[in-house]
Amino acid sequence: MRFKKIDPEQVIEFLSREYGVPEKELANLSFWSSGKRVWASSDVILPKGVNIQGIGIVIGKMKEGRIIPSNALFKNFTITKKKIELRSEKEVRTFMSGGTIKIDNGPRGIVCASYNGENIGKGLSNGKEVLSQVPKEFRAKGIHIP
């Protein structure tokens, strides 16, 4: 894969405006693009002459000049906007297994689902329902919630 360093200002501005990610959390990070994917890493030194498959974590995909956030963005950064709180263990289990949660007048579009202050993952909301967009590799049925 080919990686290109991208201007951090635009990414930081977008993520803090749209999802309320604190700027100080993003300030020391580098941002990279490969195809449509946007990656965030700490200040790493790239090796030469090798086949690079990833730098840090994927924080989103570029679409029509916007970043569509990834599940990893929500799980690894503080999110203060477009957030919905799951209300019970049952809802967490439904969400973690890829199901749909009912909400009352919630935010629309890509949202971050959280439970007891922990970001659980990404969902797609129409304001009344949130469809889990937790990637298949992270889905699970019947998880134990302490």
Partner: peptide, 30 residues
């Protein structure tokens, strides 16, 4: 620099790095 040789193993590696919130790692496949 975290290297492995096969794509399916590299995917597993990336998935664990994401789960654990690792930001200082470059994954290579060689």
């Amino acid at each position: 620099v975290a290297n492995d040789v096969r794509l399916e193993r590299v995917k597993m590696l990336r998935s664990n790095l994401e789960r654990m919130g690792v930001l200082n790692t470059i994954v290579t496949m060689n």
